Deep mutational scan, measured.
Amino acid sequence: MMITLRKLPLAVAVAAGVMSAQAMAVDFHGYARSGIGWTGSGGEQQCFQTTGAQSKYRLGNECETYAELKLGQEVWKEGDKSFYFDTNVAYSVAQQNDWEATDPAFREANVQGKNLIEWLPGSTIWAGKRFYQRHDVHMIDFYYWDISGPGAGLENIDVGFGKLSLAATRSSEAGGSSSFASNNIYDYTNETANDVFDVRLAQMEINPGGTLELGVDYGRANLRDNYRLVDGASKDGWLFTAEHTQSVLKGFNKFVVQYATDSMTSQGKGLSQGSGVAFDNEKFAYNINNNGHMLRILDHGAISMGDNWDMMYVGMYQDINWDNDNGTKWWTVGIRPMYKWTPIMSTVMEIGYDNVESQRTGDKNNQYKITLAQQWQAGDSIWSRPAIRVFATYAKWDEKWGYDYTGNADNNANFGKAVPADFNGGSFGRGDSDEWTFGAQMEIWW
């Protein structure tokens, strides 16, 4: 008995050590931004985005507190085989008060198993909700290839000249389909599951310092038995992507060409959309029709120009041509140079221009935006974070068209359509004006 009692403290210590080691193995990653800002004409900070554009130049032009908190852990490992559990909870508030209630979004919860298939060394099996191989332009917060959501897949299969990845994910639309009631009355209240099937071939070395990635995505509306879509709904579509990445000037340049059809055009990033119906009456549900095509040509990157200068840049042309004439032509160009006074202090400027032409009206909206920021960051790279910055932003815009969301679809035949700025004596778009804002912001990723 005495021997047992003497061994007990040692056993407890060993158990505590094991539990401590396991606790220390938890990975904590994430992203956050928050700050305070004012508008020159009075009131809180207002942000500037061109009507019809899918993004905006973000430096000194973000008006919310946003965070993603990721917890993950390698829960099992034997040799080169392992299982990893990953989670991500995100939230966004308007940064107007101390207490701002919000419903967090559970954006990731997945398990990734590496090297589980003997004859596919280096590959990963995964299932669950996941940010899946996302491609974006940081300076405009624009995701041009992103099929994230609940799904499953097999990735990084070594095929000799590259890595092959296969995945299936889902994005549902509210009110996407109906069941038959009586007297030809349909009640569009059932969600429609939109499935996306993704095939990618990446890391193909085609020139010194250059790699090529090719991808095909097929999206479709997956209806339940005895349900139907509204007439004209976009049932399926394709997205084709080619991306060349070149190492240059201690950074990279990415050149991207994408072509999409029908349900893959509205978001243009790989998620299927077009079966959703915002109104019970299918007579007024025309606005979900996105049959047509999209072409996107994009070049972006980040480079170092000597010891003291870094720069991000982007140039993009996007043409969404829809059968219902509600598409757009959008082109944007911008730069973000950074001058480093010390390894932790810099001055950053961002200059961006957007131009969006309405397919329906032929009119154009444009905006110039310039931001000057003094910044303190954890390192001497344009990617170094955390960063604390004080900024001043000036924007000038001239908008000739907007979307008509007055009333509702039952009493407005133009609901959701592009109209000229002065349509029917109204005021659509943001008109011709300018404004400036100033404030302070922190940004961090880890």
Rank of each mutant, 00 (worst) to 15 (best):
V199L: 14
A285T: 09
C47W: 08
W331S: 15
F252I: 01
N88T: 15
V257D: 00
F252L: 03
I303F: 03
N289T: 07
T245I: 01
D103E: 14
K114N: 12
Y91C: 07
E435G: 12
R130L: 11
S41G: 06
D404V: 04
T265S: 07
Q318R: 01
N222S: 08
D307A: 06
N355Y: 13
A174D: 06
N321D: 02
S433R: 14
S247R: 11
G209C: 07
T241A: 09
Q133H: 08
R107L: 15
T342A: 00
V75G: 12
G40D: 04
T437S: 14
A285V: 03
Q203R: 10
A193E: 10
L212S: 02
D354E: 09
E108V: 11
S123A: 13
S55T: 15
W436G: 15
L239I: 12
L298I: 06
A242S: 09
R430H: 04
P343S: 00
R336C: 00
G175S: 04
D236A: 05
N412D: 02
A101T: 10
N408S: 06
A90D: 09
V348M: 02
N190I: 00
A32T: 02
S172F: 02
L372F: 06
S182N: 00
S34F: 06
A421S: 13
T261I: 02
H135N: 11
N156K: 15
G327C: 10
D410A: 14
Y227N: 04
G429S: 09
V390D: 00
Y57N: 12
Q45K: 14
D380E: 08
T211S: 07
V89M: 06
T406I: 02
A378V: 02
N115H: 14
D404N: 00
W376R: 01
S20P: 03
M305T: 00
G40V: 09
F28Y: 07
D217A: 04
V314A: 01
W401C: 05
A260V: 00
A221V: 02
E435A: 14
E78D: 11
Y353S: 14
V196D: 10
A392S: 10
Q112H: 05
N291D: 08
L166M: 08
D187Y: 15
K250Q: 13
N424H: 03
Y317N: 01
D363Y: 11
R107C: 09
M294T: 01
A202V: 05
R134C: 03
A11V: 03
Y259S: 15
D262V: 00
A53D: 09
S55I: 10
K400R: 00
R130S: 09
R224H: 03
V89A: 14
A409S: 10
S433N: 05
G210C: 05
P208Q: 06
P150S: 15
V230I: 05
A395T: 02
N156Y: 15
M311V: 07
A167V: 04
I206L: 15
I382F: 08
V277L: 07
K329N: 02
K7E: 00
E78A: 10
V14A: 08
G292D: 00
W38S: 14
Q258K: 06
M305V: 00
D98V: 04
E173A: 08
Y259H: 07
G37A: 01
N281T: 11
N289D: 05
K254T: 01
M345K: 15
S82I: 12
A127V: 06
A32V: 02
I125V: 10
F48I: 14
P208L: 00
V26I: 00
W309R: 00
A285D: 09
S272L: 00
A418V: 12
D280N: 07
I344F: 07
T87S: 08
H300Q: 07
G43V: 02
L5Q: 04
Q374K: 15
I206F: 12
N414T: 10
W397S: 15
D404Y: 02
T437P: 13
D319V: 04
M19T: 01
Y368H: 10
G431D: 07
A302S: 11
N424D: 12
I157F: 15
I185N: 05
K269E: 05
S177Y: 02
A21P: 02
F240L: 05
M312V: 03
A440V: 05
K417T: 03
V137L: 08
A109T: 08
G122D: 11
T371I: 01
I140L: 13
A90S: 08
V199G: 12
M24K: 04
W446G: 15
W99S: 13
A15V: 01
D27Y: 06
N412K: 08
V277D: 05
A23V: 02
S346R: 05
W376L: 09
D103N: 13
T50S: 14
G113S: 12
Q367H: 07
N156H: 13
P420H: 10
K283N: 10
A221T: 04
G251V: 06
A418D: 14
D319Y: 07
G425S: 12
Q441K: 14
F83Y: 12
K81M: 05
N290Y: 11
A13S: 08
K81T: 09
D398E: 11
Y286F: 15
N97H: 11
Q49H: 02
K400N: 09
Y84C: 09
Q22L: 03
S381I: 07
D187N: 10
G232C: 09
N291Y: 05
Y403C: 05
I370N: 01
I206T: 14
S92F: 07
K129N: 10
F85S: 05
D198Y: 11
D187E: 02
S263L: 00
D398G: 03
R360S: 11
G215V: 10
M264T: 02
R200S: 14
S384L: 08
P208T: 12
P104T: 15
F106L: 14
D86E: 08
F252S: 00
Q318K: 04
N290K: 06
L239S: 05
G292S: 00
E399V: 02
E118D: 15
A202E: 13
D27N: 02
D398V: 07
I3F: 11
F428V: 12
D80N: 07
G352C: 08
W145C: 13
F85Y: 09
G60C: 11
G251D: 00
G60D: 04
S304Y: 06
L10M: 06
A278T: 03
Y339D: 07
L116P: 09
K7I: 13
R58H: 06
E173K: 00
G402V: 06
T265I: 00
I303L: 08
V196F: 10
E64D: 13
I206N: 05
S41R: 09
N222T: 09
G17V: 05
T50N: 13
S179F: 14
T87I: 00
F252Y: 03
C47G: 11
A392T: 03
L164F: 15
G268D: 00
K77E: 09
V314M: 01
D136G: 14
F284I: 01
S247G: 01
S384A: 10
M349K: 03
G17C: 07
R430L: 10
Q367L: 15
V18A: 08
F180I: 09
N326D: 09
I125F: 13
S179Y: 09
K77R: 09
N184I: 05
W76G: 10
Y317S: 07
R224P: 07
Q96H: 05
D325N: 08
G215S: 00
G407S: 00
D410H: 13
D410V: 14
G219V: 03
D310A: 08
K77N: 09
V12F: 11
T393P: 06
W397L: 07
D195E: 12
N253K: 08
W330R: 03
F428L: 07
D225G: 02
G128V: 09
G407D: 00
D231Y: 10
A181D: 11
L10Q: 05
E357A: 12
A260T: 01
P386S: 03
Q246H: 07
V333I: 03
W445C: 15
D158E: 15
A285P: 14
P150H: 02
T393I: 00
A387T: 01
G327V: 06
Y405C: 05
N222D: 07
F83C: 08
H300Y: 03
D262E: 02
W401L: 06
A409D: 04
M2L: 09
L116M: 14
M442R: 14
A233S: 08
T332N: 09
G215C: 06
V137A: 10
K396E: 01
G35A: 08
A109S: 13
G160C: 15
N222I: 04
H29R: 10
N424S: 10
S182I: 01
M139I: 12
M345T: 04
M139T: 05
V314E: 07
N366T: 14
